[in-house]
Design a binder for these strands. Structure first.
Lengths: 339, 339
DNA sequence: CCCAGTATCCGAAACGTTTTCGGAATCGCT
DNA sequence: AGCGATTCCGAAAACGTTTCGGATACTGGG
């Protein structure tokens, strides 16, 4: 059996109360006895029972991670993984552990996020990949559990958010295309239930209008962030509107799909039509042509979100909404056109 | 405050013992009272305190995940992520949660894996990405904590393993090259402290010898699973041994590096030299030329490892070593040669 | 020599469950 | 009516820790 505080007490000839205090660095225990206790604890290979501890302290030093999008389909664009790496690193540095809640299994259909968190006893939770219309979003946000949302800014007590500046990001993407001489610019967006999509659309529209180009409803299509969505919508867009010379895709995966779609209809990128993506996933520098895109600092998003949540938990003041800058990375899927 | 079993008892007019039994499905409680109790529990939004429960039951229903390789560098080849997805799915189905231990932070330098696991109170642990010479490998394996290792078969009580059949995998890779007419086949391996590397080398050698080709020490180099390692060693190999017409790389990432290396020295793949990889990562179908490789069923590795660990924990009999089949996926990085 | 103050320690309660043991009530049967 | 079996429920212990409120012994000043 693994040794407890009582075993140490017995071996040291003191009460187990004293052992507890000695190990926790209280000052009302003699330096001699403390050393003795610590020595014995090491000899016995003692490590505190976290269940007992958190039963009384009400803290578990664990962060919950709710990722709705962690499924086989999210493997190609491993954005979730990069974010997770950042989160894991920061949490580890601050001595917290991460527990994964998988919301895909059917058990979650029955159980609310909130009771899931309470049961697991996590101190706080980070949520990513959730849709705006997810019924649980409201629930979790209004519960008293501290949480930070990736990519959904919500003003509520105990909830923070981190995302990239999507409107400025897509603004610079479009501006880049315009500088290269493009005038008829299509967009393949995600879907209306993603906050990033509405923001990226906003930036697209803004950039157009500020450059005296007209925004056309029919130039934008929803590809639901899927490679196949990019494929199909690129074809649709260019069939209906052959005057389009450039497409801005709200994700790299859709951009890659779009490139394939264009290829399938005999058009070449970037000679016939330019493509610019968003995310800068690993694939984008390896596909042909390599993809010009807006880089999102995914690792940092994770890192900062863990930091923010822990700050909230430990009572430090936080600015509840962090917005990271997205910068252009130029590759070979955009070419200038003369007009 | 979140309601406890006692609050329910008070509201239902029974003892809290009865509440506990009612909620846990014991048969010695009247069906009427049970319904009443369940109703009240729902009304109050009760969910059991897991710390208290696991304090007495000694089980936490959580699996620890020790991944030594989860760092920024492992983002490109997101093998770890795919495995994690499979693990997470199966664990979720069986009502276990996953907690991530990050062994990169310095706190682990002080603390042994074993005490880390004990402290966290995980029931068992899955370990991946660990090197054979990691001093903690022995420690964890000899501790009484049930664990399953990814890619390291060890015969010890309470430890299982899952990996792909690496010798057969690399055997078929080499055989494929031989069938295509290649005779001088180089290999870029990982490093000696990876079990998979010794096995893949074994398969390479075996395939050569069984086809009456001689195994040459100087035809194999270690690229330590890095893209840069593939780049440099491909150049080295072909500079010293220009007769080589095909290279087998022990990972796709190295294969991609090798392709770039060859390109940098003016050789083209597959016309001048054929490349075959191992892993079938997401990138490999998008690079140019697309990579012929041996597919590892990464998702399944995770899925099966979670399954095995939970089987062990729940006292079911398991076959301690699972070996998954690797199949060839043909793309465009190898071409037949006539001789 | 006494008293206040300090250093060091201990006992007991508390956290929210599960589980064991036993008691009371009810039932069926003779 | 008597008796064993069955059904339902409660009291209490246990899990390993933290923390509160003292208790003891020693110190030095008066």
């Amino acid at each position: 059996m693994t040794p407890t505080i009582k075993d140490i007490a017995k071996a040291a000839g003191v009460s187990f109360t004293t052992v507890s205090r000695a190990l926790n660095g209280y000052n009302d225990v003699n330096e001699e006895t403390r050393k003795k206790i610590v020595r014995i604890a090491n000899e016995l290979g003692y490590s505190p029972n976290i269940a007992a501890r958190s039963l009384i302290s009400k803290k578990t030093k664990t962060l919950g991670l709710l990722l709705s999008g962690i499924t086989r389909s999210s493997i190609k664009d491993n954005i979730a993984f990069e974010i997770l790496c950042g989160m894991n690193d920061r949490a580890g540095e601050l001595d917290y552990d991460l527990v994964l809640f998988n919301t895909t299994s059917q058990k979650q259909k029955m159980k609310s996020y909130k009771s899931l968190c309470m049961e697991r006893g996590v101190d706080g939770v980070i949520i990513m990949g959730i849709r705006l219309d997810d019924p649980y979003l409201q629930e979790i946000v209004q519960s008293s559990i501290p949480c930070v949302l990736i990519d959904i800014p919500i003003n509520e007590k105990n909830v923070g958010s981190v995302s990239t500046d999507n409107v400025s990001g897509s603004y610079t993407a479009i501006e880049h295309l315009i500088r290269k001489g493009h005038k008829n610019i299509g967009m393949i967006n995600g879907h209306a239930q993603a906050y990033v999509s509405v923001k990226r659309l906003e930036g697209y529209r803004l950039a157009l209008e500020e450059n005296n180009l007209v925004f056309r409803e029919e130039y934008v299509a929803d590809g639901s962030f899927a490679e196949s969505g990019g494929f199909e919508n690129a074809i649709k867009l260019l069939s209906k509107h052959p005057e389009i010379t450039a497409i801005f895709c709200a994700s790299d995966l859709m951009a890659i799909g779009a490139m394939q779609g264009l290829k399938s209809m005999g058009k070449t990128v970037p000679d016939d039509v330019s493509i610019i993506g968003f995310d800068n996933i690993g694939l984008s520098s390896y596909c042909t042509p390599s993809l010009t895109t807006m880089n999102q600092n995914k690792y940092d998003m994770g890192y900062r979100s863990a930091q923010m949540l822990i700050d909230m938990l430990e009572g430090r003041h936080v600015h509840p909404h962090i917005s990271l800058h997205a910068e252009l990375v130029e590759r070979n899927s955009v070419r200038p056109i003369s007009n």
